Simulated scan of single mutants.
Amino acid sequence: MKKFIITSIAILGVGTLSAQNVTLNVRLKPIQTLVVNNAQKNVDLNYVTKNDYANGVSSMNADHLNIFSTGGFQVKVKSGNSALQNGNKSIEANTIQIIATAGSDAVNGAQYAQNVQLSNNETMLVSSSNGGVDKKISIEYKGEGQNKYLDNYIAGQDPTVYTTELTYTIVSQ
C-alpha cells in the first residue's frame, strides 16, 4: 500500500501553491454642500420705531445654513455689491454685520466668526477641521444703529427697501 501511495504521488505530481495579490484602493473625493433654509431665503431688517433707528435691528435665523462636508471646510459670505441699492440711493454693505453661531446640530470644533462686516469680497464665517453631515449654522443679521439710515427713507415708498444678494460658499480646507 505504501508503494501504491508513493507511486500515485510520483505519477500525479506534487501540487504547487501560488498566491496572487490584489490592490484595494479606497478613493475619497471631497464633497461639500451648503443649503440655505428655504423658509429663510428672504431676510428683512425692519426699522419701525425711533429706537430701531437709534439702536439698530437684527434678524436671528436659527439653522439658516445646512452643510455636508467630507473633512475640514470653510463657509464664506459675500454681497453682490458694495452697497444695498434703491434707485439712486444706497446703504453701504459694511454697515450690516453677520454673526455666525452653532445651530441645533453643530459641527464639533468649528470656529465661528463674530461681527463680520458684509462686503462684496468673500469673508470667512465658519472654519472647521472636521467634516459633518447635515450640520446647522445659525446666522444673525444686524443693521446699523446710531441713526445711520435716518436719511435713507424715500418719500412715497412705504417701506423704502434696499436690497443686495448674498452668496454663501463652502470650500474644503
Results as ranks from 00 to 15, higher is better:
H64I: 08
Y47S: 08
N88E: 14
S59F: 01
N86L: 12
N86H: 10
S79G: 10
T95L: 10
S128M: 04
V77D: 08
K50W: 09
V35C: 12
A102N: 03
G13W: 01
T16F: 13
K2P: 10
N86Y: 11
V116S: 14
G131C: 12
Y53L: 11
A100N: 01
G132V: 02
A19C: 12
V43M: 09
I6E: 15
E122L: 06
I91G: 00
K76C: 06
A106G: 04
T7Y: 14
N46P: 03
K148Y: 10
T101V: 15
Y168I: 00
I5W: 15
K41H: 08
V126S: 09
T95N: 14
K2V: 07
Q111Y: 10
G145L: 04
D151N: 15
A93E: 03
K41R: 09
Y168T: 00
N21V: 03
G145I: 00
D44C: 11
S129W: 05
A62D: 09
T16P: 06
G132C: 13
N86S: 08
F73N: 00
K78E: 10
V35S: 13
L118V: 02
Q146H: 06
I137P: 06
A155C: 04
A100M: 01
T163R: 13
S82T: 06
S8A: 12
E144K: 03
Y153L: 14
A106W: 04
L118E: 07
K76F: 04
N25I: 05
N88H: 05
Q173S: 10
I6G: 10
R27S: 14
A54R: 05
L45P: 02
Q157M: 06
N86E: 09
G56F: 03
M124L: 14
N108H: 04
I99S: 14
M124K: 12
V161N: 14
S127K: 06
N66Y: 08
I31C: 11
V26A: 14
A100F: 00
N55D: 08
N94I: 03
A93V: 00
I6K: 05
S128K: 00
D105K: 03
L84W: 07
V48M: 12
E122S: 08
G71D: 08
S129K: 02
A100L: 03
A113D: 07
T160S: 15
Q117K: 12
V22K: 13
A93F: 01
A19T: 04
I31R: 05
A10T: 02
N88T: 05
K2Y: 10
